[in-house]
Design a protein around this nucleic acid. Structure first.
Length: 315
DNA sequence: ATTCGTAACGCCTAACCTGA
DNA sequence: TCAGGTTAGGCGTTACGAAT
């Protein structure tokens, strides 16, 4: 296989980055576009992923150098360094997406009456309720996190008391997604979200000028030395639809990848197709040649490479 | 640290083979 | 134990807001 030269790769990456939104494009997207642009299978390009990542960083560095005078207008992309190492990356400020907690929700009738709005950002609900509790001195004096509801709060939340932690859960039962509601409410939600996006955008722009310190990652490492550690089900054990050529060798039309490899090796042994002079080499008969693109021999390492073309997802 | 929902993204895992 | 090759999908993290 012939991998593209660094120069070819650099030109292609720069073309892609120049013609796409730098705030939205990811490394995965660049890899996919490269695969298409260079007419190379993605799997082949994976080898050059570190180089691609480096070239993206180079591009961004050059790009930022050009626009260094515009501190609030710096470009950014998720395509460069990985999230955990992207400490020095500027944050996107030109566009924002709403998270689940920021999305607009439709309130139950009592809650809407209490807050005075039918559609509101989910995150604003505790804010309203907390402000009300403070104003009316509803905090439990022995535990200020606990709120003792007055009649208005009881009517809105259908509970006698709550803590700040349980409030979110209580609220969950009192709101609906806009898409579950009629067109009028959906329209209200749309306008509400536009407003939230605008506010978020302004906040992001302020943060871009004065970025907060990065948070440390909390992900624990897997204890690989422990053989009893919990294992996840493997994608390799999922049955796939086999091509006619592979079915002819395996004897079954649907098998998992691992089973296919097993069957092929069974077939090789049964038909004594290992090269007696070179244990790593397989001498292909007609059935195997149909799988291995007409090759008369294939190395034991090379078997897996050809399988993907003969295996498709079962719908 | 705790609650809620959700999207995006990256990490990691799995089986199989032989020979050095 | 590593080499080579395959990839779907589970899971963890992060982000967002609020108060204590």
């Amino acid at each position: 296989m012939v991998l593209p030269s660094e120069e070819t790769l650099t030109t292609a990456i720069n073309d892609i980055l120049r013609s796409n939104d730098l705030e939205r494009i990811t490394l995965r997207m660049v890899m996919s576009m490269l695969s298409e642009k260079l007419s190379l299978p993605l799997s082949q390009l994976q080898r050059q992923k570190p180089l691609v990542r480096r070239k993206i960083d180079d591009f961004l560095a050059a790009f930022q150098g050009e626009g260094a005078d515009h501190s609030t207008d710096q470009p950014s992309t998720a395509a460069g360094s990985k999230r955990k190492s992207s400490v020095s990356e500027p944050k996107p400020v030109k566009s924002v997406k709403l998270t689940g907690l920021e999305r607009a929700v439709v309130l139950s009738e009592p809650l809407a009456e209490f807050i005075g709005e039918t559609v509101i950002s989910r995150s604003h609900i505790p804010k309203h309720i907390s402000a009300y509790a403070k104003k009316h001195d509803l905090q439990d004096p022995t535990d200020r996190r606990r709120i003792i509801c007055d009649d208005a709060l009881k009517a809105a939340l259908s509970v006698d008391h709550f803590t700040f932690f349980s409030l979110a859960k209580t609220v969950s039962g009192l709101v609906r997604k806009p898409e579950e509601c009629d067109e009028h409410l959906q329209e209200l939600a749309k306008k509400c979200e536009e407003k939230i996006i605008q506010e978020k955008l302004e906040r992001k722009q302020r943060e871009a000028l004065n970025p907060p310190p990065p948070r440390p990652t909390k992900r624990p490492k897997q204890d690989k030395s422990n053989p009893d550690r919990p294992r996840r089900p493997s994608a390799f054990s999922k049955p796939m639809q086999l091509s006619d050529a592979l079915t002819a060798v395996c004897g079954e039309s649907q098998l998992s990848r691992t089973d296919v490899v097993k069957k092929i090796w069974e077939y090789i042994r049964e038909n004594q197709l290992k090269d007696p002079d070179d244990g790593k080499k397989i001498l292909c008969d007609e059935k195997l040649m149909a799988i291995f693109k007409g090759s008369k021999t294939v190395s034991n390492m090379g078997i897996a490479k050809f399988l993907s073309a003969h295996m498709t997802k079962i719908p």
